[in-house]
Design a protein around this nucleic acid. Structure first.
Length: 886
RNA sequence: GGGCGAUUGGCUCAGUGGUAGAGCGCCUCGUUCACACCGAGGAGGUCACUGGUUCGAACCCAGUAUCGCCCACCA
C-alpha cells in the first residue's frame, strides 16, 4: 500500500504504533515525536548530496546571553516551514544552528555570573576556577570582579554558553525545528575565531582591510570606537547659545552653538561662500571669547545659511560636519575632549593668553556637561553670551547600547572596505543586492538606501577586551615605538591566535613590549566582523572544502528587518570580497511581533509570556500555526486566539483522519489505488485537491507559506464539512465485508485515502507533530521525508472531472441543513420530502451526488431537483419526520 | 526632510480591474456511534479621505490624513 520503502531515518515509534488509537489528543505529541526524530536522525544532513540537491540555510545564531522570546519563536518557525518544504521536495536540507556568544552582552553576563573581568595583559591560568558562579539575582560589582586573561575569559564564556545552549536547544526541539543538532557552532568558538582571523588576514593581504588614524565616533562609556551601523539618532535636550567672537577692531561676529564647551577646540568660523552677510569676513580672522584664540573665517558650501546664525563654529570635533570641514579645509587639530568624555587635563599650547589658560585650567578634567556650565557662566560674565540659551530638542548620535551621546575623537582603527569611500565597490555591492531575492521584495530598498548612504568604510576594531582579537603584532623600534606600518601576521595554520598570549613568528615571549621586540594589537573585532562570516563558518570554509562545495553559496538567509544594514549587508560584503559571490540567493525577512496595542513587543513583556510556557499551554503545532499564518516581512499581533485556531486545526486533523481510517478493515482502512476512484463526486474532490496542491506548491516556492497554509486549510475544512459528510455512509459500505465492497464504496475509500495522504503532506511543514502522528497510524516512515505531493496522480484519478461538482453537492447539503436548522430540529431528523431549487451552474454537482446528498441529509423520501434562477441551492416544501429515537 | 509599509465587518487578517471574503467574537439552534478543544444556520462592512483614469476601482494614477518603521538632519 505504501510506495515508501523503509529507511534508516524512519522513527521507530512510528512502526510500533501503526494503529489508530481510540482517543486522540495533541497533548504529548511534542515529546514523543521530537524524541523519535532525534533517535532516528530524521533531519540529519547527508553530506554526500551534491550542491544542486542541497538546500542550505544560514540560520541566525540567537544571543545566548539573552533569553528567547515570542519573536524568536515566530521567525524561526517561518524558517522551519521553508526547511521542511524543501526537504519534502527532495532537497537535502543543510540546517545548522549557531549560538551567538560573542559581544558585549555576553561579556557583561560572564562578568556578573562568574565575578571576573577580562584583562588581556594577564597570562593564561591553567584550570582556573572563577570565584563565583550564578547571579543569585544580583551581579558581582565591578570592584569585586577578579581580573583574568582573555583566554580564561573566553573559556568561561564558552562554559556559560554551553549551559544556555541546552535550554535553547530544548525549546527549539519542542517547537519542532528540523535542525540537524549535530551541527552547531558558537560565534566565540575556535572555528568562528579562526574563520574571522583568516578572513581578516586575507582582507589585509588584498588591501581590503587597513588601519587609519582618524577622527571617529566614540562612546565615552564603553570607551570604544563605534561603527556607522551601530549608530542610533535620539532626541537629546540641548540649548542654542549665541556667542560673540570678535574682529581685531572689536566688532562682534555672533555664532550659535549647542556645544559651547568646545569653544577652546574652535579652529575656524565657517559660512556659505554665497552668503552675502559674511562676504566681508572671509579671509579675515576673529578671536574666540574667553580663550582669546585667533581663528580664520572661511567659506565652505556645507555651511547652511538658514541654520543658526548662518555662520558656524568649527571645532575638533563637535559633529561630522566639523570633520568634513577639518579635512577639506585642512584645519589644525585642537582636541579638548578625551576618550573618557572629559576635558583634557593638559592646557593646550594653542591657548596662549594668560586669561585663556586660566579659564581652561578651570575646565580641565570636567565632563562635557560640567564644562558647558562653566563656559556659559564665563561667557555670561564676559558679556559674550547674547541673550539666554534657548532650549531645543536636538538629535544626537548614540551607540545603540549606550546612553551618552557619542563624541568624536581621533584614534587608530582598523577599517574594512565596504564601498563607503569607493564608488566602484559600492556599485558592485548594490549590484549584489540586486541579485539577491528578498522576501518580501520591498525590503530590498532598505539595503539599497543603506549602501547608497554609506559615508565611510566599515570600522571593525573595538577597544574591548572580549571578542575575536586582531591576529596582528607590531615590531617595536629602538625607541620602543610600534611600527604600525609593518604589522606581523601569523601563519594561517596557527589560527586562531591571541596576540596578547601568543608570540609572533621569529620572536620570543621575553621580547614582548621591549624596544626592538614586539607588541600585540590590543583591539578585538566588532561582533559583526564575526557574524558576517556565518556562511563561511557553517559551510566549512576553513577546513572542509568538500562540505563548502556542497553548501556554499547558501540558499537562504532568514533574519529580522532591523539588521539588514548590519548582518545582511556585512555578510554580503564579506562574501563579495572573499568568495566573489553572494553568500546566499534568498533572504527571508520576518516582521515584528506586536503587542495588542500595536507596539513592538518589548523584551520585558515578551518575557512575561515565555516561549516554553506558550508551547506548553497551546501545543507546538498551535504556536507554529500562529507564526505561519503571518507573512514574511509583515508585523503580526501576538494573538492567542490564532493559536487556539491552530490547535483546533491540529485536533481536527487527528479526528478526521481517525474517522477516515475507520471505514475499511483495520489492515487496509483506505486504499491509495487511484484506479478505484470511479464516482464523479470523489473524482471532483480529487480534482479540487489537485488544484490546491499546485497552488500551494507555487506559493511555497515563492516563499509565501501563508498562502499555502490558507489554501490547504480552506480545502480541508470543506473536505470535512461537506465531502466527508456526503460520502461517509457510502464509505462505510454498511454491511459489506472486506471481500465484496461495492464499487461505490471502494471509490470513496480510495478517494479518502488519496486525499488524506495528500493533506497530511501539505500540512506537515506547519503542523509537524499532528501530521506525523497520523502518518504513524497507517503509513511507514516519516511524513517529513515523504515526497511533497504533486497533482499528477490526483488529476489522473480525477479523470477530467469538474472540481465544481463538490460545491454543488455541498450547497445541496447545506440547503437541507438549513431547513433543519431553521426548524430547530436535529440534523438527524429524517426528511420525508423536499424540492431542491438548484441554479443551473450547480445542477450537475447535485445530480452527480444525489445519492450522497440523500444519505447525508437523511432524505428518506422524495427529493426532487428543479432548476432555479437563484444563486444558491434552496430547499423548499420540506416535510420533516420524527427524529429517530435515541 | 527623503523613503518603505499599513489603513477592508467588534478583533486578527486575505483579497492587484468585473456584483465585498475568511477565522475569531456575536445571535439562534443542534449534538455526545470522528471531533464539546464539537456541529449547523444567521446577523454584521458606503474597503481612511479627496480627486482622476476606466463601461466598471478595495485594487490603477495624483494628492491628503493617521499609524508603524528605515534613513538623513546635530551651527
Amino acid at each position: 500500500m505504501s510506495d515508501l520503502t523503509s529507511r534508516p531515518d524512519v522513527p521507530t515509534a512510528a512502526r510500533d504504533a501503526r494503529q489508530v488509537p481510540d482517543k486522540v489528543t495533541v497533548d504529548g505529541l511534542e515529546d514523543r515525536w521530537s524524541g523519535a526524530w532525534s533517535e532516528a536522525g530524521t533531519y540529519a544532513f547527508d553530506r554526500t548530496a551534491t550542491r544542486e540537491q542541497v538546500y542550505s540555510i544560514d540560520t541566525p545564531p540567537p544571543t545566548v546571553s539573552g533569553s528567547l522570546h515570542v519573536g524568536h519563536v515566530f521567525s524561526y518557525t517561518h524558517t522551519d516551514v521553508v526547511a521542511r518544504f524543501w526537504r519534502m521536495r527532495g532537497r537535502e536540507v543543510f540546517y545548522p544552528m549557531g549560538w551567538d556568544d560573542n559581544g558585549l552582552p555576553t561579556e557583561r553576563r560572564v562578568q556578573n555570573y562568574y565575578g571576573v573581568r577580562c584583562d588581556p595583559s594577564l597570562p593564561y591560568v591553567e584550570g582556573f576556577e572563577p570565584p563565583h558562579e550564578g547571579t543569585d539575582g544580583k551581579a558581582v560589582k565591578p570592584g569585586d570582579q577578579v581580573p583574568v586573561s582573555r583566554r580564561n575569559f573566553i573559556e568561561l564564556c564558552e562554559r556559560l554558553s554551553a549551559q544556555d545552549e541546552l535550554q535553547f536547544e530544548a525549546l527549539w526541539r519542542r517547537l519542532g525545528l528540523s535542525v540537524d543538532w549535530s551541527m552547531t557552532y558558537q560565534t566565540i568558538g575556535a572555528t568562528a575565531r579562526a574563520v574571522s582571523q583568516r578572513a581578516f588576514l586575507r582582507n589585509l593581504e588584498r588591501g581590503e582591510a587597513y588601519q587609519a588614524e582618524a577622527p571617529g565616533l566614540w562612546d565615552v562609556t564603553f570607551q570604544t570606537a563605534v561603527a556607522q551601523a551601530e549608530l542610533e539618532a535620539r532626541d537629546y535636550p540641548g540649548a542654542f547659545h549665541k556667542v560673540a567672537f570678535h574682529r581685531p577692531d572689536g566688532e562682534a561676529v555672533v555664532i550659535e552653538t549647542t556645544r559651547p564647551e568646545l569653544l577652546p577646540a574652535c579652529v575656524a568660523l565657517i559660512a556659505h561662500p554665497d552668503d552675502e552677510r559674511y562676504q566681508h569676513l572671509f579671509g579675515t580672522t576673529v578671536t574666540s571669547p574667553l580663550f582669546g584664540v585667533e581663528v580664520p573665517v572661511l567659506a565652505h558650501p556645507a555651511a547652511e545659511p538658514d541654520k543658526g546664525a548662518g555662520i558656524a563654529m568649527c571645532c575638533t570635533f563637535g559633529d561630522l560636519t566639523d570633520v568634513q570641514w577639518w579635512r577639506e579645509l585642512r584645519l589644525p587639530t585642537r582636541s579638548v575632549v578625551g576618550r573618557d568624555g572629559r576635558v583634557l587635563r593638559e592646557t593646550p599650547d594653542w591657548i596662549t593668553s594668560e586669561a585663556g589658560r586660566a579659564t581652561y585650567g578651570e575646565l580641565a578634567g570636567k565632563t562635557t556637561f560640567s564644562a558647558r556650565e562653566a563656559v556659559v557662566a564665563g561667557l555670561r560674565a564676559s558679556g559674550d553670551l547674547l541673550g539666554e540659551p534657548v532650549a531645543t530638542q536636538r538629535k544626537a548620535n548614540f551607540y545603540e547600547k549606550g546612553d551618552k551621546p557619542l563624541e568624536i575623537v581621533t584614534s587608530r582603527q582598523w577599517y574594512l572596505r565596504n564601498g563607503g569611500r569607493d564608488e566602484e565597490l559600492r556599485d558592485a555591492l548594490l549590484a549584489r543586492g540586486g541579485e539577491l531575492a528578498f522576501h518580501p521584495d520591498f525590503m530590498r530598498v532598505r539595503y539599497d538606501n543603506w549602501v547608497g548612504g554609506l559615508n565611510g568604510d566599515w570600522l571593525v576594531s573595538r577597544q574591548r577586551f572580549f571578542g575575536v582579537p586582531f591576529p596582528v603584532w607590531y615590531p617595536l623600534d629602538e625607541q620602543g615605538e610600534p611600527r604600525y606600518d609593518a604589522p606581523i601576521v601569523p601563519d594561517e595554520a596557527a589560527l586562531p591566535v591571541d596576540p596578547t598570549s601568543h608570540v609572533p613568528p621569529g620572536y620570543t615571549e621575553a621580547q614582548r613590549g621591549k624596544a626592538g621586540g614586539f607588541v600585540a594589537d590590543p583591539d578585538v573585532m566588532d561582533t559583526w566582523a564575526t557574524s558576517s562570516l556565518t556562511p563561511q563558518i557553517v559551510c566549512g570554509w576553513l577546513d572542509d572544502p568538500d562540505l563548502f562545495a556542497r553548501t556554499f553559496p547558501m540558499d537562504l538567509r532568514p533574519q529580522g528587518q532591523d539588521i539588514i544594514r548590519t548582518w545582511l549587508f556585512s555578510t554580503v560584503v564579506r562574501a563579495h570580497l572573499e568568495n566573489g559571490s553572494l553568500p546566499w540567493s534568498h533572504a527571508a525577512i520576518s516582521g515584528w511581533i506586536l503587542d495588542p496595542d500595536r507596539k513592538k513587543m518589548s523584551k520585558s513583556k515578551g518575557n512575561v509570556v515565555t516561549p516554553m510556557g506558550l508551547l506548553e499551554e497551546h501545543g507546538s503545532d498551535a504556536v507554529r500555526y500562529w507564526a505561519a499564518s503571518a507573512r514574511l516581512g509583515t508585523d503580526a499581533a501576538f494573538e492567542v486566539g490564532q493559536m487556539k485556531i491552530g490547535r483546533r486545526l491540529a485536533i481536527k486533523i487527528l479526528n478526521a483522519s481517525k474517522f477516515v481510517l475507520s471505514f475499511g478493515p483495520a489492515d487496509e482502512p483506505v486504499s491509495l489505488d487511484a484506479s478505484l476512484v470511479t464516482q464523479p463526486l470523489d473524482r471532483a474532490m480529487l480534482a479540487g485537491l489537485a488544484e490546491v496542491v499546485d497552488q500551494a506548491t507555487a506559493a511555497l516556492e515563492a516563499y509565501d507559506h501563508t498562502r499555502a497554509l490558507e489554501l490547504s486549510e480552506t480545502f480541508f475544512w470543506t473536505f470535512c464539512d461537506d465531502y466527508l459528510e456526503l460520502v461517509k455512509d457510502r464509505a462505510y459500505g454498511a454491511g459489506a465485508s472486506a471481500a465484496d465492497v461495492t464499487e461505490a464504496t471502494a471509490s470513496a475509500r480510495a478517494a479518502l485515502g488519496l486525499a488524506l495522504d495528500t493533506l497530511l503532506r501539505l500540512f506537515a511543514p506547519v503542523l509537524p507533530f499532528a501530521t506525523e502522528e497520523v502518518w504513524s497510524w497507517w503509513r511507514e516512515g516519516t511524513v517529513h521525508r515523504a515526497p511533497w505531493p504533486t497533482s499528477d496522480a490526483l488529476r489522473a484519478a480525477a479523470d477530467g472531472t469538474d472540481p465544481g461538482l463538490v460545491a454543488g453537492a455541498g450547497a445541496a447539503l447545506a440547503a437541507l441543513r438549513k431547513v433543519k436548522s431553521e426548524a430547530k430540529v436535529s440534523m438527524r431528523t429524517p426528511l420525508e420530502h423536499a424540492v431542491l431549487d438548484v441554479p443551473a451552474a450547480l445542477r450537475a454537482g447535485v445530480e452527480a451526488a444525489i445519492d450522497d446528498v440523500r444519505n447525508a441529509g437523511r432524505a428518506t423520501g422524495t427529493l426532487e431537483v428543479a432548476t432555479s434562477e437563484g444563486e444558491t441551492v434552496v430547499a423548499r416544501d420540506a416535510r420533516l419526520g420524527e427524529a429517530a429515537p435515541r
